[in-house]
C-alpha cells in the first residue's frame, strides 16, 4: 500500500478525534489543553499533507500555515499554562 492522501487524512481524523476525546471528557485544564494541542497537530498534519499532494505547490502555502499555527499554538499553550499556574 502506497500512502495516498486519503490515508493521511484518516490518520489525521483519528488524531483529531483522540484530541477531541481528551478535550471533552477530562476535568483538568491541562488535559483539555493537551487535547486542543492534539487537534491542532492534526490540523497541521492535514495542511502539510495537502501541500505535499498538490502538484502546484508554489508558494508553499500549507507549510506556511502550519508554521504559523505552530507559533500560535505555542502562544496559546503559554497563556493557558500561565492561567493554570495562576489558578492553582
Amino acid at each position: 500500500m502506497i500512502p495516498t492522501l486519503q490515508v493521511f487524512l484518516i490518520v489525521s481524523a483519528a488524531l483529531f478525534s483522540a484530541g477531541l476525546l481528551a478535550a471533552l471528557s477530562r476535568r483538568h485544564a491541562i488535559f483539555i489543553l493537551i487535547g486542543i494541542e492534539m487537534m491542532l497537530a492534526a490540523a497541521n498534519l492535514n495542511f502539510i499533507a495537502f501541500w505535499r499532494f498538490n502538484p502546484q505547490s508554489q508558494p508553499p502555502t500549507g507549510v506556511m500555515i502550519a508554521i504559523f499555527s505552530i507559533a500560535i499554538a505555542a502562544a496559546e499553550a503559554a497563556v493557558g499554562l500561565a492561567l493554570v499556574i495562576a489558578e492553582f
Binding site: 500512502p3 494541542e37 497537530a41 497541521n44 502539510i48 505535499r52 507549510v63 502550519a66 499554538a73 499553550a77
Partner: peptide, 23 residues
C-alpha cells in the same frame, strides 16, 4: 515523511522542546 523537514524540526523544537516541557 512528507518532505517538510523544516516544519518537522520546528514541531520538535516548539512542541517537544517547549510546550511539553512547559506542561
Amino acid at each position: 515523511l512528507l518532505g517538510a523537514e523544516f516544519v518537522g524540526l520546528v514541531l520538535v523544537f516548539v512542541y517537544i522542546g517547549a510546550v511539553a516541557v512547559l506542561i
